[in-house]
Computed example of a mutant assay.
Amino acid sequence: MAKSEKRISISVMDKIIKEHFENTTTEQWYGIEVQIKKTLSFTEMMEFVNDVVLSCFQEDGGFVPEVMDFAIRSNILSKYANFSLPDKLEHRYEIIYMTDIIDLVCSRINGAQLNEIVASINRKVEFLCDSNALMIKRQVNDLISAFNDLQARTEGMFNGISSDDIAKLANVLSSGELDEGKIVEAYLDKTRPAESFESSDE
């Protein structure tokens, strides 16, 4: 009889993490205490990825790749550390790029996790861009089909009508002299069967 495998319990793992892997550290930065979380939770990691990806796309679907690095750095400060960032993007940009705070935080966090987060962001952005391109291609194809169908039906409508007749119709339309009654009357005249009259000596 095969010996059953002895598995390590969850409680043992939790104990090891608690006793040997402290997830927070406090660093001094220009006279202030910065609390840094070494590793994000699963939920925080997902929020990080989604926030950056959403920041790279405009409401009309336009892709703004130049925002990606800025959004990643913003999330490093807000997710890994206890920084409050201004809503005004110009102000936030100055804080992030005119100080060395990003270097401090990144030197204390789980680099492997951050690398995986950035890789996930890139893969998700690539997927969305490909999906968007495919959707646009389908819309263009649908539009081309609609134009081809319209062209085919239009050609049938104008069979037997000369280019001079079309030009005259265009002039009437542009002049505002079009009268619905006259159109109906002309149509009836055109479609009414020719009547035969017999001469009578009576």
Rank of each mutant, 00 (worst) to 15 (best):
F70I: 06
S162V: 03
N23S: 03
N171H: 10
I8W: 04
D165Y: 07
S9A: 09
D164A: 14
F63I: 00
P193Y: 05
M157K: 12
T99D: 03
C56E: 04
K79T: 07
V140W: 03
I101A: 02
P65H: 06
E185R: 12
F83S: 07
E202R: 06
I109D: 00
N159E: 12
E19S: 05
C56Q: 02
L85R: 01
D14R: 14
S55T: 10
N159Q: 11
S163R: 11
K79C: 14
Y187R: 10
L104T: 01
L85K: 02
E94F: 09
T24K: 15
E19N: 14
V184N: 07
E59R: 10
T26Y: 03
R192N: 11
K137Y: 06
D100Q: 09
Q113I: 00
L150D: 08
N159P: 01
A194Y: 07
V140M: 15
F42T: 14
K137S: 15
V67W: 09
T26N: 04
K137C: 03
P86I: 05
V12Y: 15
E202C: 06
Y97A: 00
G62E: 10
K88G: 05
L40M: 06
A186E: 15
H20D: 15
N148A: 13
F127T: 08
G156F: 08
E19L: 14
I36N: 01
S9C: 02
S200T: 12
Q28Y: 02
K37L: 13
G181Q: 11
E44Y: 03
K182P: 04
I121T: 02
G176P: 09
G156A: 12
S200P: 00
A167G: 13
F63C: 01
I32S: 11
Q35R: 03
Y80I: 14
M157E: 14
T154E: 05
F147V: 04
E47V: 09
I101Y: 06
R92Y: 00
L114I: 00
C56D: 11
K15A: 13
D179I: 07
N75E: 04
K137N: 11
Y30T: 09
A194S: 10
S74K: 13
M98W: 11
K79Q: 07
R73Q: 15
L77P: 04
I16R: 03
D130N: 13
K3R: 04
Q28P: 01
L178P: 03
L128G: 00
S131P: 02
V105A: 02
E5P: 02
I136S: 06
F63R: 06
N141L: 14
A186W: 09
K137H: 12
W29G: 02
